[in-house]
Design a protein around this nucleic acid. Structure first.
Length: 372
DNA sequence: ATGTAC
């Protein structure tokens, strides 16, 4: 199911859509799918319910090709979601005190150099390691609400969801290409090999970055963070059938995957089935944007009182986002309904919810650091 | 996405 080959010509990728008729998908995102399906050497595409328009192609899809397309990965190479269990019960969380302490994430990571040296990642520096960055990135303390049998978390537990990537490292790798990817890179070309090596390093750096952020957040909260799962959603890798590019599409080969909601809506821990080969081993990574950044400024009041109210989320939790534009652009209203995304994934038997994770403190950015 | 441009 879900297959809808487009066009009548021969050289068009097979497109599989994993969303149902009632799911909100922007027309421009589907136009982009059609466009990328016609790129040379593109064989199969899987599109997921968090699909939305992006700069070089749609976000929320996986693309199988005979060559490398760096623009389908984008500048934030290795960006992903990592979920950690905290050994701190939800009933012990003092929201205001914890929010104050988490402000230390704004500062530099004193352990970055040592962490990078231990990881032995070639040709990248520790600059920015352990920091969240901007845009849609965040570090969120969540409380487990509902759980399904087999969940590695229990109701009332706290966890940490970190969404971040390779910061200026991946952006530098992408920028160095200067847009000169032509009709993609042949994997065995000098340019292709050089990009792949740098890409792989950035993917490792980004995973390390999420672990550093979680360690720093746990330190701020006087507890320990234990990794549950970490899935990259901007990367490419070689498969038996070609080069798989994931853009806003999570790795679905790890049994588990986090799916981000928004600051106003629950995230999910998913059990991944891996049953449908047309999904190309990928999966939704979040709710997906409903409105682009510019549109959000036309949709929200931005007065002092309005912005002050945004320090609380819709569920009584806290939001630390002391950047005026980002506060509006990353409002919960900018995102689609994560529960509907999860329902679509379940309907196609791609993944099923194991735990519902309610946002308690969303940390984006602070103007000043936190208390010691 | 970006130690955020001219």
């Amino acid at each position: 199911m879900g297959n809808s080959p487009i066009g009548t010509g021969g050289d068009v990728a097979q497109l599989s859509k994993f969303y149902r008729a009632g799911t909100w998908i922007e027309g421009r995102a589907e136009d982009q799918l059609t466009e990328v399906a016609g790129w040379p050497g593109m064989s199969r595409i899987a599109a997921f319910p968090d699909l939305h328009p992006g700069r070089f192609g749609p976000v929320g899809a996986a693309f199988l090709a005979d060559r490398l397309w760096p623009q389908l990965v984008g500048p934030d190479i290795g960006c992903g979601m990592a979920l950690f269990a905290l050994d701190l019960p939800g009933r012990k969380l003092n929201l205001d005190r914890a929010a104050r302490r988490l402000r230390m994430l704004e500062g530099p990571d004193d352990g970055a150099d040592a962490a990078l040296a231990a990881a032995d990642i070639p040709d990248l520096t520790a600059m920015g390691l352990g920091t969240i960055g901007g845009g849609n990135h965040f570090c969120e303390v969540q409380e487990v609400a509902e759980v399904a049998p087999g969940a590695p978390l229990a109701t009332g537990d706290l966890c940490l969801l970190v969404h971040s990537g390779s910061r200026s490292q991946g952006a530098g790798i992408f920028a160095a290409l200067q847009g000169e990817w032509g009709a993609g890179f042949a994997p065995d070309s000098d340019a292709g090999r050089a990009y792949l090596a740098r890409h792989d390093a950035a993917v490792r750096w980004a995973r390390l970055n999420r672990a550093r952020i979680a360690d720093r957040a746990a330190q701020a909260l006087r507890c320990q963070a234990t990794l549950i799962c970490d899935t990259s959603h901007n990367h490419l890798r070689e498969t038996d059938n070609g080069w798989l590019h994931c853009k806003g599409a999570a790795e679905a080969d790890r049994g588990l995957a986090p799916l981000a909601g928004s600051r106003d809506a629950a995230s999910y821990l998913l059990a991944v089935t891996g049953r449908d080969p047309d999904a190309l081993g990928a999966l939704s990574h979040g709710a997906g944007r409903r409105y682009d950044r510019a549109a959000m400024h036309g949709r929200m009041r931005e007065g002092r009182a309005d912005l002050a109210a945004m320090t609380r989320n819709a569920l009584g939790g806290r939001v630390i986002c002391e950047d005026r534009a980002l506060q509006v652009e990353e409002s919960g209203r900018a995102y689609k309904n994560a529960a509907a995304v999860v329902a679509d994934l379940a309907a196609f038997d791609l993944a099923h919810p194991l735990a519902t994770l309610v946002p308690r403190i969303t940390f984006k950015t602070a103007r000043t650091g936190g208390e010691a």
